[in-house]
Amino acid sequence: MTADLLRREEALARVLSHVAVLGAEDVPTGSAVGRVLAADALAAVDLPPFVSSAMDGFAVRAEDTPGTLVIVERIAAGLPSSRGLSRGEAMGIATGGVVPEGADAVVPIEYVVEHDNKVETSEPVVRGANVRPRGGDVRAGVAVVPRGTRIAAAQVGALAAAGIAGVACTRRPRVAVLSTGTELRRPGETLGPGQVYEANAVMLAAAVAAANAVVEQLPAVADNENAHRAALERALSADVVVTSGGVSVGPHDLVRRVAGELGVEEVFWGVSVKPGKPVSFGVRGRTLVFGLPGNPVSSLVGCELFVRPALLALQGAAEPGPVYEPGRLAVAVRRNPRRDELLRARRTIRDSGVFLEPITGQESHMIARTAGTDALVLAPSGTGELPAGAAVRYLPLA
């Protein structure tokens, strides 16, 4: 198997080459968080939709300053003035209020002296000061958020402000998650000899849900061909199938063979990465099928490296990832001569940047230790070691 291992980058490229973006559906703007835009969202109005004040103060004509001006009206946000501004006049105005015709500047309230319904300015005011031009943020008909953007709170705010009530988003992918293994029992049940609690399916379901998938978590199946066949046939109706366990070369590793009998064409098996070497990927029609290892950390790493990017690509994300961030090692790390390693680590923020300290106990079964980490540090294959302070890339886990 070692000679046939794919490089991590090549494996991801093969996965993404089999992705066909899903169809679009209309989604209310307020419900679109986490969704990916299927088309540019165009502003319905100029933003701001009128010339407005950037400060609480007084709307004036710049050529009338400095001097004493008569206050003829007071403008609240949402309540424009009843007339324009004439020479020698000022109007009180709130932030966001409509600047009246004739005014070309706003003097902040703290820079004036108000008395007897008059306002006195002691310094000349520059034309355009504290005035927000109509359409200064975006013009009607211009893209507020481009296609392929994954929507977060900032995008929702921008869409709503631009008068966009709903957006076209790519359909959320349907993902079936299946764990295999006779030894698996649900948390809370009494363990018998040789049995362990099933953690992979719930972990993977949480991970793919974070990528905005609609998840169906199937009951774990024993190492039995008929049970595998029934569960996989059901799972293959989804857009994506994610299994854990049963993808290696042991006598009870049935997933790849049974999937093949059900028409899954295997694209690759085995990636030059640690943990997670025996990951498999195949397709049946447009359904993507990922076989992740049974060791929980290997399963998590495989999901982050391959499944999550595939899910975001299915949704048309402009940058499906994985998106690595820069940091520095807090301690030295010995490199693996044959495989890239993803090391679980803790992040520390210092004045000079992000520092990452890999935890002790990097074995692929040690999922409990992963709970105390928030990063996967990429240590490229090679000889020797990466010294403390070396620049590295990492994937955030939280």
Rank of each mutant, 00 (worst) to 15 (best):
V138P: 07
G128H: 06
R139S: 11
G148K: 12
A165Q: 11
P133K: 12
A129L: 09
A158L: 11
V167M: 04
P133S: 08
N130S: 06
A153Y: 07
V125Q: 00
P146F: 05
G166N: 09
V125F: 02
A162F: 04
A154F: 04
A153I: 11
A154E: 13
G157F: 01
G163K: 01
V156P: 00
G128V: 08
G128A: 08
N130C: 04
R134Q: 12
V138A: 10
A140G: 09
V142W: 15
V167F: 03
A165R: 14
R147V: 13
G157K: 08
N130D: 02
G128D: 06
G136C: 00
D137L: 15
A154S: 13
V156R: 09
G141C: 08
V138S: 10
T170R: 15
G135V: 00
V138M: 08
N130F: 05
V142Q: 14
R147W: 03
P146H: 09
A158R: 13
A168K: 15
A168F: 05
A161K: 14
G141S: 07
V167W: 03
P133T: 06
A143C: 08
A140Q: 12
R139H: 13
R134W: 03
G128T: 10
V131A: 09
P133E: 09
D137Q: 12
Q155C: 06
V131R: 14
A129I: 01
